[in-house]
Every structure is written in structure tokens, then in C-alpha cells.
């Protein structure tokens, strides 16, 4: 298998993983909205914005899914995924470090994870997104050089 094929294959896998993850957690948060909102209310730093956050996060997750499904917007989907996962990770880190009682704001089976495991899981997903984004940019640069140089590949 060529290197480019391998990169494309790995990017597609990351994309489908993100589609599954965000659809699953987004839908779960909407179905169990009262529980999600209640767990945000128990979080001292964001409880004042519980209604806005409890609606905007699942909607944002589902918007990212739409971007990832259509190839035209996939790059933007990866970028927004990175931003959202980074925000979740910063929040989880803050909660682990400074809050003694930790309510779970996650969706579905992910709430079975401990906060430390959640942090590990998020870090792993962020790493996958970063690899995909960097490899896509590298690939674009390679094409651009060959186009401007007008040399046969």
C-alpha cells in the first residue's frame, strides 16, 4: 500500500470515528436533555449558562457531523472537531484539578468512563484529528508545488 493511500485510509477512519462519536453523543444529549442540563447545573463554572450550553453543544456536534459527511466541508469539520474536543479537554482538566465533586456531563455509554479516562480518550481523539489535519495540509502542499513547477509527476 502506497504512503498516500495509507494516509487517505487513516484520514477516512478518523473521519468516520468522529462522525460516529459526535452523532452518538449529540443525539444522546438531546434525548437525555434534562440529565445533561442537570449535570451542567451542578458544575460551578458553567452553571449560569446551563440552558444555552445544554442546547448549543449537541447542535454544534451535529453540525460538525454534517460538515464531516460532505467531503467539500470535511476540512472545516476536522477543524471544528479539534476546537470542540480541545474545549472539552480543557474543561475536564479544570474539573479534575479544581472541583472536588465531579458531575458527569457526557452522553450515553461515555458517562461510564471516569474523568481521567475521559481525559485520555479526548487526548487520543485530538491526536487523531491533528494527524489528519497535518497530513491533509502536507498533501495539499505537495500538489501545489508540482502544479507550479509544471513538471510531470
Amino acid at each position: 500500500m502506497k504512503k498516500t493511500e495509507l494516509i487517505n485510509y487513516s484520514n477516512s477512519l478518523t473521519c468516520y470515528l468522529l462522525i460516529f462519536l459526535f452523532t452518538y453523543t449529540g443525539i444522546t444529549k438531546l434525548i437525555d436533555h434534562s440529565i445533561f442540563k442537570s449535570s451542567i447545573l451542578q458544575s460551578s463554572i458553567i452553571s449560569n449558562y446551563a440552558t444555552v450550553i445544554s442546547l448549543s453543544i449537541p447542535l454544534l456536534e451535529l453540525s460538525i457531523v454534517v460538515m464531516l459527511v460532505f467531503e467539500k466541508y470535511r476540512q472545516k469539520g476536522f477543524l471544528f472537531s479539534l476546537l470542540l474536543m480541545a474545549a472539552f479537554t480543557i474543561y475536564i482538566t479544570y474539573m479534575i484539578l479544581f472541583i472536588p465533586h465531579l458531575p458527569c456531563s457526557c452522553g450515553g455509554i461515555l458517562k461510564e468512563l471516569s474523568w481521567s479516562n475521559h481525559l485520555l480518550f479526548n487526548s487520543f481523539v485530538i491526536l487523531l484529528i491533528l494527524v489528519s489535519l497535518l497530513s491533509q495540509n502536507k498533501h495539499k502542499l505537495f500538489i501545489a508545488i508540482n502544479r507550479t513547477s509544471r513538471k510531470p509527476v
Binding site: 473521519c15 468516520y16 462522525i19 460516529f20 462519536l21 452523532t23 452518538y24 443525539i27 444522546t28 434525548i31 437525555d32 457531523v65 464531516l68 459527511v69 460532505f70 452522553g107 450515553g108 455509554i109
Partner: peptide, 17 residues
């Protein structure tokens, strides 16, 4: 395939929530 994964995730959420 992306749409199939979306359907799969919706099904999974229906069974686990």
C-alpha cells in the same frame, strides 16, 4: 459511508440511552 455511520450511531444511541 458517512450517512451509514450516522445511522449506526443513531441506532447505538437508541439502544444505550
Amino acid at each position: 459511508l458517512g450517512i451509514f455511520v450516522v445511522m449506526l450511531a443513531i441506532t447505538a444511541s437508541a439502544f444505550t440511552v
